[in-house]
Amino acid sequence: MQSNQHGSLVVVGTGISVAGQMTLITQNHVRQADIVYVAIPNKPGEAFIKQLNPNTHTLTDLYELGKSRVQTYQDMCDRIINSVEAGQKVCAAFYGHPGVFVNPSHRVIEVLKERGFSVMMEPGISAEDCLVADLGIDPAAFGCQSYEATQFLFRRYTLDPHMTQIIWQIWGVGDHTLTSTLAHEKRGLAALVSALSKYYPEDHPVIVYEARTSPLFTSRIDEVKLAELTSVQLSPISTLVIPSLGLPDFDHETLDSLGITAEDIQHHLSIKQPVN
């Protein structure tokens, strides 16, 4: 995009782990910036970025216990916007993928684009990417639906149990205050289990997943029955994965219109590729 202002912003993601998941282009954006803002949850990752660019400043000081995240995100945006408007080439680095479950990254891009600045986002490795790798789940195998837990609970979503379900942030599910102060309560989790029980038997296996954030440890992969979920110890990074009930039936009306049959499809699916 052609910009008409001097300052610029690139938003990058640092991955879920400490520093090993930063892409080469991300590292180069950090090196080439006038100033770097980082909002990542570990000091070694921050130290790694500081080695790439000494003019690195944290945004995590804006987090305060009990402070609404809406305000925290606004404060982060203000800090980044001020630097861009001062004419600086700014790089903002967020944890994971900068566009996934990150509010201020989208907001600053939107505001600065409206004001005529050059802005862009580079993709990063998200928790979902780690989940796919750790659990060996291909989102394309059954299709996949992905929700934030509280939003799923509060809204009238339609869940398709034939698809793999990924439900994020189950630890604080039902906490409408945006402060996580109600996260210790289990009422929301019980309501979530109740909502899911409309689609699955109580003994349907579900997985509590936590991507490893440090190479010292392994990712958490705990399989339990749906009905047991309320008694499981959760953490702020717990994600619920619900395996599919299996593929749905064929849509014979559509197949007929295309002149093919279910058997034709099964035949092609059964052709094995040789392994060299």
């Binding site: 570990n42 070694p44 509280t150 509060f154 954030t213 702020p236």
Partner: peptide
Amino acid sequence: RLDMAGLSSIVWVQHAK
């Protein structure tokens, strides 16, 4: 020890809409 070394995690959550 991990907290002191800055190796612990911050809670990263996006609010429900």
